[in-house]
């Protein structure tokens, strides 16, 4: 075991002491908890000021302006823009009379974030989610006679190694294309056979999802998923709750 420096041993005990101070709040509020809480807040403030300065403000503001003063490319002078905006934020904090200058950096940041969010959520949360919600409800079973490794891997009880062995056995013509046939494959190790055996099942397991017909549990689940999504959308957009329903609910579902 690596030996610790003495100061690190002291530090470990300090950590233990502060942990117990905070846990003491479970008994009741007390001076030890308050001390630990205020120390934590204070240290956090100093910590984040240092991190923000050296990781962001120093390279992107101080070093850029220093490079500009040092005769670098004109683009370094663009750092004057965030400098001016930052100073406007400082003025807002320290002066009530000139607090209005703080509106410029706020307007800049809030508008930029708003602009970024518009396209981001439209694509990721509207587009992609609507596309998924409109996916075909009909789910066919996976045909073990023709499916690729990539198609076989997500099946319950399959790993990429098992999928490759099934495809190899299939190509060699020595494979019965059923879940039973997979479990009986001679090339599987005992552990792999165990994984397959663990995931057999006629409702949701390997037996249900493989074959030439339909995967009924999947179809039912997809119908429920679509109905659930539509119902929730109708609830949010058209407030389908009736007065009687609201009266029955009476406040939050789990309120005291």
């Amino acid at each position: 075991m690596t030996e610790l420096y003495f100061i690190d041993v002291v530090g470990a005990w300090i950590g233990i002491f502060l942990t117990l101070c905070i846990l003491s709040f479970l008994y009741k509020d007390n001076p030890f908890y308050k001390f630990a809480e205020h120390l934590f807040v204070g240290v956090s403030i100093g910590y984040l000021v240092s991190q923000q300065y050296y990781n962001v403000m120093r390279p992107k503001l101080v070093d850029e302006l220093a490079a500009g003063f040092g005769g670098g490319a004109w683009t370094h002078w663009l750092a004057l823009v965030p400098l001016v905006l930052f100073l406007a934020m400082v003025v807002k904090t320290v002066s009530r009379k000139f607090a209005w200058v703080g509106r410029y950096p706020l307007a800049f940041v809030v508008a930029l974030f708003a602009g970024l969010q518009i396209n981001a959520v439209a694509q990721a949360e509207l587009g992609a989610q609507i596309k998924r919600a409109m996916k075909d409800i009909d789910t066919k079973q996976v045909d073990l006679q023709t499916a690729s490794v990539a198609r076989l891997t997500p099946l319950p009880g399959f790993t990429p190694a098992i999928a490759e062995k099934v495809v190899a056995a299939r190509d060699a013509g020595a494979f019965v294309p059923t879940a039973e046939g997979v479990q009986a494959l001679p090339s599987l190790t005992d552990a792999e056979r165990g994984i397959v055996a663990d995931n057999r099942g006629t409702v949701k397991g390997l037996d249900a999802q493989t074959g030439k017909g339909r995967y009924w549990f999947g179809i039912v689940s997809n119908i429920l998923l679509l109905l659930g999504t539509l119902t929730s959308l109708l609830y949010f957009y058209f407030s389908l709750a009736t007065r009687a329903w609201s009266a029955r609910s009476r406040g939050s579902a789990c309120g005291s």
């Binding site: 403030i45 750092a79 930052f86 940041v109």
Partner: peptide, 16 residues
């Protein structure tokens, strides 16, 4: 880049 500076600056100002 300017937004990153302002975001970091906001933390510094919050500390002040």
């Amino acid at each position: 880049e300017w937004t990153l500076v302002l975001a970091a600056g906001a933390y510094v100002i919050g500390a002040i």
